[in-house]
Design a protein around this nucleic acid. Structure first.
Lengths: 255, 255
DNA sequence: CAACAGTGTTCGGCATTGTCGACCGGGGTT
DNA sequence: AACCCCGGTCGACAATGCCGAACACTGTTG
């Protein structure tokens, strides 16, 4: 793998920086964060501005992400095969289970939501397509980690952030959970991200059997789990069936 | 304005090309489309791939947009002030009018949808945040053109695409429609994009009174228009009130 | 009131950087 | 087996973009 194009890599770093720090940044802050000379950073940002990837607030002079990126992002959704194949199966799953359905894939060790179907009964939900979820505290994330050794190692390396009392924070607990998921072929999360909320997810396989994503539902514990605190078997079956159906659509055989 | 950074401008052109041609492209096609040597195009694409902006289909070797762009795009939504200020007013507008509400802004002479509230009664609608609408055949677009001379000129220059029999295709008709919108302070579209569908929109002004976006609703003609084929005055008032409210939130005075 | 510490922006010289076109290896098709 | 397309690689050359200092401006601070 020969070297990267320096300026493009730097431009991408600037965009990611702007995205992560959610807000406007001055050119000085950007240059300092990335150890770049101010002049260099300015040249890059100026071209990014010319192509519409960043915008400048005229009063404060600070920079933020540009509108073109929004369009590029949704264009990605149109092309994404995982999403397009999933849509047909996500709606029935939401209807049958009565819960919100999400489809995610791994991006930089986190879960990128590529599709989201609202819970049928409720309207007041915020769409979170495009947002990143923590891998260790969601059903989608744990399933994805279970079938991606690289990401799983990275996740167990650094201390996982605790969201609730039930969040898996130790490497041992997480590793065991992933192993269980591999044995069962599905995974769950009960109050590990938000108290009282639970999720069930199963892996989606693409051509060749490789896991390319995961589909799952989430909802209140008292609806998604039975009396003994385990995920309702009927819901698990629904999720696994949906995952299998999407996998078949993607060209995976015998799953 | 000193020169642009060549490689970044080229990288952006590649991304836009991939977005517009909605599908996978080979490196040869890309190089030919942009008049670049194959080797150069390859270097740029390789780095774009390293940073996750494009992905490569392993079997065909072709390239498509990458997942990172989806995240960047939604990050843009989080920062976008027009959107965040609008959300509070879009929901009530949808509730009062009973129709779908959209908020858009001008991007490269087209209408970029930055927010979308579904029609309250119906669930089966596709979210089109991030998609580009034609400016000359939508209420949002015509309102935005009416207050942007540059984009209006560009729109009247080239032959507008006809969608229905009622689409404004001549420069004269479009210019007159824009003038009317400026006089009235709001605009409408009746069956110009889709037969039987109509839209009503009003401009949103930012700090200093500059038009930075538009808010509008759309729905079946028999619900949004009265017996004589004009937009229902009550709905027009709702839309204009919402536009004024958002403008006030954005810091525009006396509108 | 002046000095200062910020900001974003410009400019020109140097050498690093990325461009370029030919070349390589593989899959299809003819 | 010859051909033609594909994507990927390599190395020489010089155009390119990087860099640091200087600029203009604002608001704050001594």
């Amino acid at each position: 793998m020969p070297g990267q194009v320096q300026s493009i890599a730097r431009a991408a770093a600037i965009l990611r920086l702007l995205a992560s720090s959610s807000g406007r940044l001055g050119i000085g802050e950007i240059a300092r964060s990335l150890n770049l000379p101010k002049g260099t950073a300015h040249g890059i940002i100026r071209t990014l501005q010319d192509v519409g990837f960043v915008e400048q607030d005229k009063t404060s002079g600070k920079y933020q992400l540009g509108a073109t990126l929004l369009h590029l992002g949704t264009s990605y959704l149109d092309v994404n095969e995982l999403r397009s194949r999933s849509i047909n199966w996500a709606d029935p799953l939401a209807a049958r289970s009565g819960e919100a359905v999400r489809i995610g894939t791994l991006l930089d060790g986190k879960v990128l939501v590529v599709h989201h179907v609202f819970r049928p009964d409720d309207i007041l939900q915020t769409l979170d397509v495009g947002s990143l979820l923590p891998p260790h505290a969601t059903a989608l994330g744990k399933v994805l980690l279970a079938y991606d050794v690289g990401a799983a190692n990275a996740a167990t390396q650094r201390e996982p952030e605790p969201y609730t009392r039930r969040t898996l924070v130790t490497a041992r607990a997480l590793t065991r959970a992933l192993s269980e998921i591999r044995d069962n072929g599905w995974g769950a999360e009960i109050g590990e991200m938000t108290p009282g909320e639970a999720g069930i997810a199963a892996p989606i396989r693409g051509y060749g059997g490789l896991v390319v994503g995961a589909i799952g539902l989430s909802g209140p514990v008292d609806r998604t789990c039975d009396g003994s605190g385990n995920p309702r078997p009927a819901l698990v079956t629904y999720v696994r069936d949906a995952a299998r159906a999407v996998s078949r659509d993607l060209g995976a055989t015998r799953w």
